[in-house]
Design a protein around this nucleic acid. Structure first.
Lengths: 220, 220
DNA sequence: GATTATTTTTAGACTAGCCTAAAAAATAAG
DNA sequence: CTTATTTTTTAGGCTAGTCTAAAAATAATC
């Protein structure tokens, strides 16, 4: 059994590992958890002893299979609880994060699976992040795209579904890069094209073909 | 903000105070929390400093108004979550206690009130214990009585609603005392009288008049 | 490639909560 | 009312997790 703190470290390493290519640096974990590098070193050693992370001094940390499984299951809990809070208890989707941070640490397989069923097996949380399945698989097919946004919703670009040179060129041209903020103004029913502005710039028109291949996360 | 441990101490003192007349002894708290008396003394001092318990050496502890309010709100959380687990997530009512012990410590007024509303303001938890309202009042009118049991259900006597000498005499005669276990065998539709056995003894007949004045807790 | 800057680790100290063992107080028994 | 028993408190030590400050290693710069 792990402490809540240990679980939070695993989660932090998992999150950071999505941004960094190889081992996750001590500092980035410290930043993620708002703690100090020396505390991180201590904990990394402990988790290494428990075979949840791979660690060599000065080399950063990576999760072992076991460590990753735990991290993903916590993320699964977190996102399911967020859905619960929004869909069942009428929370706003920007109010749920802190509560989900607490609820996610209640470890009961039965609880998680029953909650999942009760919510009718949601595919993503209210922020648009995918919910890992029972086996820890994160199905990228269920990503939220720009085409899923309604008028007046705002999203942040986190990836693309289409890798063709022409598409990427197009995105570059309109300055739609990773991390860009898109505000949808309105959507034309007829062809599902939308007018939207990028980083609060001028409004431009985006075809459905283009919007459905742009993976985004909802934001405020 | 209190730690989970501190909250658990307040809850334990509250529970013990229902059984003991004056100050709650160090030992009974230790027993309740499965810890040692010396640990209890430490914590009582700490809670006393925070003005949540009244404490004088060797005199036992009582909750202050503030401490009691916190204890009751935790119990409110606990019982609401138990209802949620049973009614919404299909848990059996004897499986929910440990999970509720964890969920109860998530302190968010909004969460509690929304959950209460979502569950349609239940009056008691699956064990038959009353759920304190938002203001911490525990409405004794909603006690579960023997008359509320179905055939084949089992209860433990925790009190009476009627204090008359004749009623108490009757109970004594049939050996229905505090803590006695009652198993309901069947209920006669016509006059709502029931046949039931006390502490697995012979089956006897109990009138509705008698059963509706006997406060019980459901048990296994 | 030597030097400076940054990152990471170590060393030592702190708090919360727990323990054991011994001392002190309260209670029970003779 | 003195002695024995039980309860409670104190004293000191342990672990988990945190911190600061200093040392060691790595990375960056000239």
């Amino acid at each position: 059994m792990l402490t809540i703190t240990e679980e939070n470290y695993l989660k932090a390493i998992f999150k950071s590992s999505l941004k960094e290519t190889d081992g996750v640096s001590t500092n980035s974990i410290a930043k993620e958890l708002e703690t100090k590098a020396s505390s991180v070193t201590d904990m990394i050693k402990k988790l290494s002893d428990k075979k949840l992370v791979n660690y060599k001094k000065y080399q950063g940390a990576t999760l072992t299979k076991q460590g990753k499984d735990i991290a993903v299951s916590i993320i699964r809990n977190h996102r399911l609880w967020e859905v619960f809070l929004v869909e069942k208890l009428n929370f706003k989707w920007d109010e749920v994060h802190d509560l989900a941070e607490e609820l996610e640490h209640i470890n009961s397989e039965k609880l998680t699976e029953q909650l999942d069923a009760f919510l009718e097996f949601p595919k993503h949380d209210p922020h648009g992040d995918p919910i890992p399945d029972k086996n820890g698989n994160i199905n990228r097919h269920n990503d939220i795209t720009l085409a899923d946004l309604q008028a007046n919703e705002i999203g942040t670009v986190v990836g693309v579904k289409e890798q063709s040179k022409s598409y990427l060129n197009y995105l570059e041209n309109i300055q739609l890069e990773l991390g860009a903020k898109i505000t949808v103004h309105n959507i034309v029913d007829f062809d599902r094209s939308m007018s939207a502005s990028i980083n609060n710039g001028n409004s431009i028109n985006i075809s459905h073909q283009a919007s459905k291949n742009l993976i985004i996360k909802k934001s405020k």
